[in-house]
Nucleic acid binder design. Structure first.
Length: 597
DNA sequence: GTGAACCGGGG
DNA sequence: GTGTACGGTTCAC
């Protein structure tokens, strides 16, 4: 047996002989070689909450479901006996779920909608972007019939569970790409309009524009045909082997366009580590461009999570982040610049290069936070880069639920979702409209992480809600305005997790202060920022209708206490000679009207 | 007023 | 792929 350590980048599964085999994609941190590790020892499963246990078991066995185990799990504060049904293939899960749904003694089905690779990461407790220790041995490409993979990719069969070292390396090799397209007829049509330029830029000093036209610019490499350009593009990606491939709106423009042109020109785009072509994963109405084994990040989506702007054009985003103007060519005139064959063509080359360079700069600035979030939440960077903070929280909670042997609540059905949405909207934070006038001696007072603090202080959690019966008054907290009650003991699921996040953040901040290596200092900073975002958004789980842990009462209690806290603080400030003039949710401005020295 | 339709980024 | 966004604005009646 051999040991191999990889920086885990990506994960999926393949099907061989009707069985799912998990593939872990990573790079050897010392040699930068690409590694694919196969694990064929993990099976999909789901849980059934029975009405009558024995009856239920009998009914399931009748359907030839024989891999059944009993497990005691905590369901929102209550210990319950569940039947765990283990299956052979992930795609059987939704099928069997639908089959058993109407059985007389099946009360509820749980954890039937967790993608297999995510289930693997959670259950094996391994984290993308960490260094993972693998025990197993090298295999030939024939073993798993993954025969199209390049010879320089190392294939490894796991004989034991992978082990997370909980360490990482501060390496973030980013390669950006961007295309320019011929567009005499308005928005280009990939069936007919060729790609005229492909630009690439690496944050380690790599700059290139591929084109079928010649240029004086050093960064331009001229190729014979559009088809050659696509092939050269693949070659460069392979040769540069970045940790992250970034684009701007590349999920919805560049990658679909490149794929379509490759189809039209009959070029095989072997971009994946396994030499697979670009694939698209449906995410709502949009697609996410998958380059298997590499991490493709669309910065457009990321930026929309990261900052609030009116418009999110590459130009506006770059100017906002770097306070610098960007080279611009009006989109609808690109074909004219291309056809001009004069100085304007050179301008177009500059523009194409600049788009890639600025994309790299933006990626360099914001992906470290996304990497930190990926490690916190324990899900792949590709997924995290396409999640809202709310979704990150949900996956983080699902990880923690597994660790604490809590069963995960189901997502609401559409009916439940609509009911939740239509039910009277919860009141928000307290707002005092600003008083008119000019004021002197202004002070601003605010609560640090008001909502997270309230959740912890009042132990607000779906598993601590009580009607107070059988408890004495000092055993629960009572919310002002609405009388919701929360048991003081034991600590609720969500409060305890927020507590851990805040403690961890303090620990990281301390490490950050003591750290002397600038790179590591920055890495700690991103980590504590990620933790802060997680804690501050956690209150949303109670208010967002699609969340598994949605609980209207909890959401209402938090804001009610919030309103009380801030108004108390305002009153208190008046005792010290302040007069509040404007307040919003967790802070207020006050003017000092007491005696000055 | 209400619900449907549209929009984002990209060239 | 153990799947089907989202939130805001404008339009049509």
């Amino acid at each position: 047996m051999q040991t191999k350590t990889i920086l885990l980048n990506d994960i999926d599964y393949i099907t061989r002989n009707d069985k799912a085999i998990v593939r872990l994609f990573g790079t050897d941190p010392e040699t930068s070689e690409n590694v694919i590790a196969y694990d064929s020892n993990f099976l999909p499963y789901m849980y059934v909450l029975p009405l009558d246990l024995d009856e239920c078991l009998a009914q399931l066995r009748e359907l030839n479901l024989d891999n059944l185990e009993l497990e005691s799990k905590n369901d929102i504060g209550v210990e319950k006996e569940f039947i765990r049904i283990t299956l052979n293939h992930p795609q059987e899960v939704p099928k069997i779920r639908d089959t058993i749904r109407d059985l007389d003694d099946v009360r509820e089905i749980r954890e039937y909608d967790i993608p297999f690779y995510r289930r693997y990461l959670i259950d094996k407790q391994i984290t993308p972007r960490n260094l993972i220790k693998l025990n197993g041995h090298l295999v030939d490409r024939e073993v798993y019939d993954d025969i199209n993979i390049d010879k320089d990719v190392i294939l490894f069969k796991l004989d034991e569970d992978p082990v997370d070292t909980h360490k990482t390396i501060n390496r973030n090799r980013i390669l950006s790409f961007d295309i320019e397209v011929y567009n005499a007829e308005g928005m280009p049509d990939a069936e007919v309009d060729p790609i005229i330029m492909m630009s690439l830029s690496g944050n380690y000093g790599y700059n290139k524009v591929l084109s079928t036209k010649k240029s004086e610019r050093e960064f331009v490499e001229t190729v014979e045909s559009e088809r050659d350009m696509l092939q050269r593009f693949v070659e460069i990606v392979k040769q540069e082997n970045p940790d992250i491939l970034v684009g701007y709106n590349s999920d919805n423009f560049d990658l679909p366009y490149i794929k379509k042109r490759a189809d039209v020109l009959k070029v095989k785009l072997k971009l994946g580590i396994d030499n697979s072509t670009i694939k698209f994963m449906k995410r709502g109405f949009n697609n996410a461009g998958v380059i298997r084994g590499r991490t493709h990040v669309d910065l457009y989506l990321l930026i929309r999570q990261y900052m609030r702007l009116e418009r999110y054009t590459l130009e506006k985003v770059y100017e906002e982040l770097f306070n610098e103007e960007k080279i611009d060519v009006p989109g609808d005139k690109i074909y004219q610049y291309w056809d001009s064959d004069d100085e304007r063509l050179e301008e177009l080359f500059d523009y194409s290069m600049d788009d890639a360079v600025t994309t790299t700069m933006i990626g360099d600035k914001i992906t470290p936070l996304t990497i930190a979030q990926s490690r916190l939440v324990g899900q792949p960077l590709f997924d995290i880069a396409r999640m809202t903070t709310g979704q990150m929280i949900e996956w983080y909670l699902m990880l923690k639920a597994y660790e604490k042997n809590n069963i995960v609540p189901n997502k609401p059905t559409n009916t439940e979702y609509n009911e939740r949405r239509l039910s009277k909207k919860n009141e928000g934070g307290y707002v005092k409209e600003p008083e008119k006038g000019l004021f002197e001696h202004i002070a601003y007072l605010d609560f640090k992480s008001l909502y997270p603090s309230i959740i912890i202080a009042q132990n607000i959690s779906p598993d601590t809600i009580t009607d107070g019966e059988g408890l004495s008054e000092d055993e629960y907290y009572t919310c002002p305005e609405n009388d919701y009650k929360f048991r003081k003991e034991p600590k609720g699921f969500i409060p305890s997790i927020i507590g851990n996040i805040l403690d961890e953040r303090q620990r990281i901040k301390k490490l950050m202060k003591e750290e002397t290596v600038p790179e590591q200092k920055k890495a700690y900073d991103f980590e504590q920022q990620g933790l802060k975002r997680l804690a501050n958004s956690m209150y949303g789980v109670y208010g967002y209708s699609r969340f598994r842990w949605y609980k209207k009462e909890c959401g209402a209690a938090i804001t009610a206490w919030g309103r009380e806290y801030i108004q108390d603080a305002m009153k208190k400030s008046e005792e010290y000679g302040f007069k509040p003039i404007y307040a919003d949710t967790d802070g207020f401005y006050a003017t000092y009207i007491g005696k000055l020295e």
